[in-house]
Structures are given as structure tokens and as C-alpha cells.
Amino acid sequence: MAYSRRLFVFGMAAFLAACQSRSQKQAALDAGLTLDPDGTPDYALAYAARRDGGFNLPAIDYLATDPQYWRQTVRYPTRHEPGTIVVDPSNKFLYFVLEGGRAVRYGIGVGRAGFAWNGEAVIRFKREWPKWFPPDEMIEREPHLEKYRDGQEGGLNNPIGARGLYLWQGNVDTLYRIHGTNQPQSIGTNASSGCIRMWQQDIIDLYDRVELGAKVVVLG
């Protein structure tokens, strides 16, 4: 009997370890990550330098940022359907809702405009390496931006970054954007300007997941 109990305990431990391993692997896959040989997510690969749209994106110094802002799969029970984006400006998180009460969570940086609007909208446009149009009030504060009144072409120096998601309510542009950034150190912080900014590698990942017409919920 003692032998049988030991065998049962050993079997259950092996079973639970295998389940945990599968769960970790699935969580990494859901977040678009691969696993190191030791079973941990390979963030060095996820945030490595890459070529995109004719531009050489630099690697992200992710180790200099709190790990809670690294892309990861988390438990996220919600009434919103899979495919919905939920933005939590106060906590500097963006969630892409998955099935089964889970979500891919990304760290974000939030400028003043990021706190100026909340509610529900849809993604009407998606743009790769979009133009940036500085608001009039920004040009007033920083006159050297006058040269970009008609737009700054996409590129590594463009503050919109590699991708832009444009939020509309019906036929009204909210002027609220989810976009990349050329200031990676701003993730997890209250940035000086802009809406919702993400690491370039993360906005590319989100861009590839989200569909036109997807609902976006911005928490107050």
C-alpha cells in the first residue's frame, strides 16, 4: 500500500509538472513568444532588433523596464469578447482579449491626451509607418514643429512609430491613437505628450492580431 501511494504521488507530481509545462508553453505562444531551453519566455528574441518596412528597428532594452510591462499572457476575466482591446491608462496596461478569461497584456506609456478621453470606439484605420501630424497646440508650444504641419513622413524619428491604430465613434474621429514610439524608455510612465504608446515590437504584434472594426474600450 505504501508503495502504491508513493507511486500515485510520483505520478501526480509528474502529471502536474507536465500540465504546468504545457500551460507555460501555451501562455508564451499566446503572447507571441518562444521559450528558452529552461522554459522561460525568450524576451531577448521578442524585443530584438529587426527589419521592418525598410527600417532597422533597434532592440528594446527591456531589462531596464519593470517586468510587469513586458508582453505576457495573463488571467483577465471580462465581459468583452475575444478580439477586444481594453486600455487601462492609469495602470499603464493594454489588454488584447483572448478566449477563456485570458488576455495578452502589453505595457504602455500615456501622454496627456491618453487621459483626455475614455469610452468605447472601434478601429477604423490601421496604418504601417504612418505620417505624424502634430496638433496645433503642440506647434504653438514648440515652433520648430511648424515644418511638420502637413505631416512628418513615417520613419524611425516619427513619434507615431511603426504602426498606428485609429479610434473612431461612428463617423467621428476621436483623435485617440494607439501607436508605436521612438522613445522606448517612456513605457510604464506618464509621457509628456501623445495618446497611447507601445514598444515598436509590441505595436507590431498587436497590429497583426487586431482586426478593422474591433472594439476598443478605454477605461476612465
Rank of each mutant, 00 (worst) to 15 (best):
D173Q: 02
H144C: 13
L7C: 14
Y3N: 15
P184F: 00
A191W: 15
F115L: 11
G11Q: 08
F115C: 07
R102F: 13
W132Y: 04
P41C: 08
N118I: 05
S186F: 07
G101V: 12
G155D: 08
T181Y: 01
F115E: 11
Q185H: 11
G114H: 00
P41K: 10
L206R: 04
A48S: 10
N171I: 07
D38F: 13
N158H: 04
Y69M: 04
R112S: 12
D36S: 14
E128C: 11
Q169D: 11
L16T: 09
Y106H: 00
Y207F: 12
A2M: 14
Y3A: 15
Y69I: 02
Y207W: 12
F115G: 09
G154Y: 02
L212H: 02
I139M: 05
I196S: 05
K92R: 01
N182C: 02
A48P: 09
T40Q: 10
T65N: 07
I160D: 09
G111K: 03
G107L: 13
V122F: 11
R163P: 01
Y166V: 14
M1I: 12
T40N: 06
F15E: 05
I187F: 04
A13H: 10
A59E: 03
G11K: 09
G154T: 05
T84R: 01
G83E: 04
K215S: 10
R209L: 10
L16R: 06
G154D: 04
A28D: 04
V74R: 05
G155A: 07
R163L: 01
M198T: 04
G155Y: 10
P143A: 09
V217Q: 00
P184H: 01
I187L: 01
A46T: 12
S90N: 13
A59C: 00
K25E: 06
V218C: 01
Y207I: 11
T34W: 09
R79K: 11
R141Y: 14
I196E: 08
Y69V: 02
D88C: 03
N91D: 12
E146Y: 11
D173F: 07
D150L: 03
L212T: 03
V217F: 00
A44S: 15
I204V: 12
P159G: 01
